[in-house]
Design a protein around this nucleic acid. Sequence first.
DNA 1: GTCTATAATAGGATAGAC
DNA 2: GTCTATCCTATTATAGAC
Lengths: 184, 184
Amino acid sequence: MPAPLATKDQIIDRLFSVFRERGFDGASLADLSQATGLGKSSLYHHFPGGKEQMAEAVLTRATALIDRTIVEVARGPEPLKTRLRKIVVALAQFYEGGRASCVLGQLATAAIGAPARHGLRLAFAHWIGAIAALAGESGMPPARARAFAEDWVARLQGALILQAASGDTAPFKRAMAALQELAA
Amino acid sequence: MPAPLATKDQIIDRLFSVFRERGFDGASLADLSQATGLGKSSLYHHFPGGKEQMAEAVLTRATALIDRTIVEVARGPEPLKTRLRKIVVALAQFYEGGRASCVLGQLATAAIGAPARHGLRLAFAHWIGAIAALAGESGMPPARARAFAEDWVARLQGALILQAASGDTAPFKRAMAALQELAA
DNA sequence: GTCTATAATAGGATAGAC
DNA sequence: GTCTATCCTATTATAGAC
C-alpha cells in the first residue's frame, strides 16, 4: 500500500522501481498500478501508449538522473578526486552497495520499441561521456579515455549481474574503487 | 518452422536459444513450443515443472557447455597462450562476436526459484574458477587472480548489455583482448 | 484525473485420445 | 511421446461514470 502521490515525476519514480526490480516483461500492469497507487485506467490516462510509454518515461528520467548525479558533478569546479568520490558515493547509494539492479541493464535486452531504445542509448551515452571526460582529465588520451569509460560502465553492469546471480557485492565494490583510482 | 528433433539435449538447446534471446519472462510457452517443434503438452511431458524446470535444464546445460569449452581447455596441456586463444575463439563464436546475449545474464535478474538459482550460481562459479586458474598461471597471486576472474566475467556480461543497448561490440572485443593479454 | 466494470487475449498448465 | 482440445488465470487495454 504505497502512499498517495502527486506529481508525474513521483509516478515515474515508482514505475522506475518496478521496471528496475522486475524488468520489462516481468513488470505487469497490476504491479505498476499497485506501486503507483493508481488504477490501471489512471495509468493509461498518463501513458496512453501503455507499458512501452511508461518504460520510455522511465528511461528519460534515468537520463535526467545520470545528468544530475554524474554528468554535472563531473563538470563541477572541485578537484578531480572530490568529484570522483561524490560520483562513487552517489552510485553506491543508488545501487544499494551493489545489491540493486540497474534499470538500463534490465531494459537493454527487453523487446522494447524504437523510442524506448533511443532513450536507453541516450542514457548510456551520457553516462559513458561523463566517465570518459573524467578519465581524460586523469591524463588518458581521448580514445583511451573513451574505451576506459565504456569498459568501466560494462564492468559495473556486469557486477550487478554477478551480484544478482551469486549475491557477491565484491565486483561492484572493486568497480567503485577502480573509478576512484582515476585520481591516484 | 524448426526441423524435427530427436534427443533431449537437442530440445534443451532450442530452449536455450529462446531463453537467451527473450529472457525468462519474455519466453512464452508458445515461443518454446515453436522453437522445439513440440506441442505444449509434449514439453510438459519432458519438463513437468513447466518453464521453471526448462530454465533449470538450460542452466545445467550452460554449465556443461562452460565446462567443455572453458574449464577443460583451461586445464589442458598446451601453452597458456594457446589455451587462452582457444577460449577466446570459442567465446567470440558463442556470443557471435558480442552481438548475442548471455543466457546467464538474462536469467540472473529473473524471478526464478531456488533450483534454477543454484544452477545459475554453479555456471558462474565454474566459469570464474577457470579464468582464475588461468590468471594464477599468468603470475597473479590467488586472491588477485580470483578478483581478476570475477571482474573479467562481469566486464564480459556488461559488454553484452552495452551491445544490446547501443549496438557497439567494441567493449566485447576489448574484453576478449584483455583475456588474451594474460599470456603477454 | 481517478474510479469500477468489462472486454479481449495471451499465458501457463492439464486431460485424455492416439 | 506426441497430439488436440480445454481450462483457468493473469494480462493488456478500453468504456464510461464520477
